[in-house]
Simulated scan of single mutants.
Amino acid sequence: MPPEWSSSSPELLLAVDRTSGRPLRAQLEQGLRDAIRTGRLSVGERLPSSRELARTLGLSRGLVQECYAQLQAEGYLVTRPGSATRVAAGAAASPGTAQPRTVAPRLVADFRWGVPDLKSFPVQDWLWSTREAARAMRTADFDYGDPRGSADLREVLAGYLRRVRAAAADPEHIIVCNGYAQGLGVLTTEVGDRAHGVVILK
């Protein structure tokens, strides 16, 4: 799947040498051909507009339009009315120049430990909750904040642990981790140092 850019015109690294004596249009055409042949530009990927590419390279817009028209005639590019110029479907990379993307084999059953059933994740509920929370967030809440985790969340967790687990929980002594792996890493590092490298998990 070709990348889609949120900006009005994607960036593209090309260079022209005005001291080489070679026509600028020929250099631009060759640069685009090479980018497509080597897989640097993939099939379906959007190119910058002729105006934007001309501005970036310091060329006339007419020269860029002529270059696009030539590559379209050669089958490298395709342009549709009301749409951007894209790499044509038949303009594949040369054999051996680009490494094909390997697809992992599909597992009949996944018995890895610590991995939940990802298909059952409530995506719509998560998006709704995130949207509602973002509406009420202060600007300062978008900062990194306390590395131990949200003070409000740690306060709620401490209250829960006191009520349900009868634990002497203090929000100042609670660390909220990003997940199981980070929590295990923090635990083994801290406890391991104190236990001289011996940790027993139950």
Results as ranks from 00 to 15, higher is better:
residue 102 T to C: 08
residue 60 S to V: 08
residue 152 D to W: 11
residue 94 S to I: 15
residue 140 A to K: 07
residue 3 P to R: 06
residue 175 I to V: 14
residue 177 C to P: 02
residue 10 P to E: 07
residue 201 L to T: 07
residue 116 P to N: 03
residue 152 D to T: 13
residue 103 V to D: 07
residue 130 T to G: 05
residue 25 R to C: 02
residue 200 I to T: 08
residue 93 A to S: 15
residue 170 D to P: 02
residue 149 G to T: 13
residue 53 L to C: 05
residue 133 A to P: 01
residue 8 S to F: 13
residue 116 P to S: 04
residue 109 A to C: 05
residue 115 V to F: 07
residue 127 L to K: 11
residue 197 G to D: 03
residue 166 A to E: 14
residue 139 T to V: 10
residue 161 L to W: 14
residue 93 A to I: 04
residue 186 V to M: 07
residue 193 D to L: 15
residue 139 T to C: 01
residue 50 S to V: 03
residue 109 A to T: 10
residue 114 G to P: 01
residue 61 R to D: 12
residue 63 L to P: 06
residue 166 A to P: 00
residue 144 Y to W: 02
residue 177 C to S: 08
residue 89 A to V: 14
residue 49 S to E: 13
residue 136 A to D: 14
residue 156 V to R: 14
residue 188 T to Q: 10
residue 186 V to C: 10
residue 123 V to W: 12
residue 53 L to I: 04
residue 145 G to A: 02
residue 142 F to E: 01
residue 58 G to E: 05
residue 201 L to E: 08
residue 200 I to V: 14
residue 50 S to R: 10
residue 38 T to L: 14
residue 4 E to V: 12
residue 163 R to A: 13
residue 26 A to C: 01
residue 175 I to Y: 09
residue 67 C to I: 00
residue 162 R to K: 12
residue 29 E to W: 00
residue 50 S to K: 07
residue 137 M to W: 14
residue 106 R to E: 14
residue 29 E to S: 09
residue 157 L to N: 03
residue 56 T to E: 11
residue 110 D to S: 04
residue 43 V to G: 00
residue 6 S to Y: 12
residue 152 D to Q: 14
residue 68 Y to A: 01
residue 74 E to A: 13
residue 38 T to C: 11
residue 77 L to Q: 06
residue 132 E to C: 06
residue 115 V to R: 11
residue 36 I to Q: 00
residue 5 W to G: 03
residue 27 Q to D: 07
residue 84 A to W: 06
residue 43 V to S: 03
residue 10 P to M: 04
residue 47 L to A: 01
residue 84 A to R: 11
residue 73 A to V: 08
residue 20 S to A: 15
residue 47 L to H: 02
residue 55 R to P: 01
residue 16 V to L: 13
residue 100 P to Y: 03
residue 2 P to D: 00
residue 43 V to C: 09
residue 99 Q to W: 11
residue 169 A to K: 04
residue 115 V to E: 11
residue 72 Q to W: 01
residue 18 R to A: 10
residue 39 G to K: 06
residue 190 E to T: 14
residue 87 V to E: 00
residue 103 V to Y: 10
residue 49 S to D: 13
residue 173 H to K: 13
residue 140 A to N: 01
residue 33 R to P: 06
residue 144 Y to N: 03
residue 134 A to L: 12
residue 141 D to V: 03
residue 89 A to F: 12
residue 42 S to N: 08
residue 26 A to H: 10
residue 167 A to W: 14
residue 179 G to R: 02
residue 154 R to I: 07
residue 129 S to P: 00
residue 5 W to L: 02
residue 191 V to P: 03
residue 35 A to H: 09
residue 184 L to N: 03
residue 72 Q to H: 07
residue 171 P to H: 01
residue 86 R to P: 00
residue 29 E to T: 10
residue 86 R to Y: 00
residue 154 R to D: 04
residue 59 L to K: 06
residue 182 Q to T: 12
residue 131 R to V: 09
residue 101 R to W: 15
residue 29 E to L: 11
residue 41 L to T: 07
residue 105 P to H: 07
residue 121 F to K: 04
residue 3 P to M: 00
residue 160 Y to T: 09
residue 40 R to E: 15
residue 175 I to H: 06
residue 196 H to E: 13
residue 166 A to I: 09
residue 68 Y to T: 02
residue 108 V to E: 14
residue 2 P to G: 00
residue 115 V to A: 06
